[in-house]
Amino acid sequence: MSKCTLCGAEFHCAMQEGSPEPCWCTALPQAVPVPLPQEAAGCWCPACLRAQLEAALTQRPR
């Protein structure tokens, strides 16, 4: 089990768990840059990542 670095929720991350299958997050749009190591890096749960993606997509200039 992984722990979300934003909210603390537990969830499955295929990459951290060593699964040969791709993680659920790879199916989402790549709209949020990956944090640098000195930032609050780590996996986010599905709810937090989707919320961050929604916020990023609605803030993009058209």
Rank of each mutant, 00 (worst) to 15 (best):
M1Y: 06
M1G: 08
M1N: 09
M1D: 00
S2L: 04
S2R: 05
K3F: 02
C4Y: 04
C4G: 06
C4R: 01
T5N: 10
T5K: 15
L6C: 11
C7Q: 13
C7W: 11
G8L: 12
G8D: 13
A9P: 01
A9D: 02
E10W: 06
E10D: 00
E10P: 04
E10Y: 10
H12Q: 09
H12Y: 10
H12F: 11
C13R: 00
A14C: 12
A14S: 15
A14W: 01
M15H: 14
E17G: 12
E17Y: 10
G18S: 11
G18H: 12
G18E: 10
S19F: 08
S19G: 11
P20T: 09
E21W: 07
P22T: 10
C23P: 05
C23W: 07
C23T: 07
C23S: 14
W24N: 06
W24I: 05
W24Q: 08
W24E: 07
C25I: 04
C25T: 04
C25A: 13
T26D: 15
T26L: 15
A27L: 07
A27Y: 08
A27Q: 08
A27P: 05
L28I: 04
P29Y: 07
P29D: 09
Q30I: 03
Q30T: 08
A31T: 06
V32L: 05
P33M: 04
P33W: 00
P33Q: 03
P33Y: 01
V34D: 02
V34L: 07
P35F: 09
L36N: 00
L36S: 02
P37N: 11
P37I: 05
Q38C: 11
Q38D: 12
Q38M: 13
E39H: 11
E39K: 03
A40N: 12
A40C: 05
A41S: 15
A41G: 15
G42Y: 10
G42S: 06
C43F: 06
C43M: 00
C43E: 02
C43D: 00
C43S: 07
W44T: 02
W44E: 03
C45W: 02
C45D: 01
C45M: 03
P46C: 05
P46A: 06
P46E: 05
C48S: 12
C48Y: 11
L49R: 04
R50G: 08
R50W: 02
R50H: 07
R50D: 02
A51K: 12
A51F: 10
A51V: 02
Q52S: 15
L53D: 00
E54V: 09
E54P: 04
E54K: 13
A56G: 06
A56K: 07
L57F: 05
T58I: 10
Q59I: 03
Q59M: 14
Q59C: 14
Q59T: 13
R60E: 13
R60L: 15
R60T: 14
P61E: 15
P61C: 12
P61V: 11
P61A: 14
R62T: 04
R62Y: 00
R62A: 15
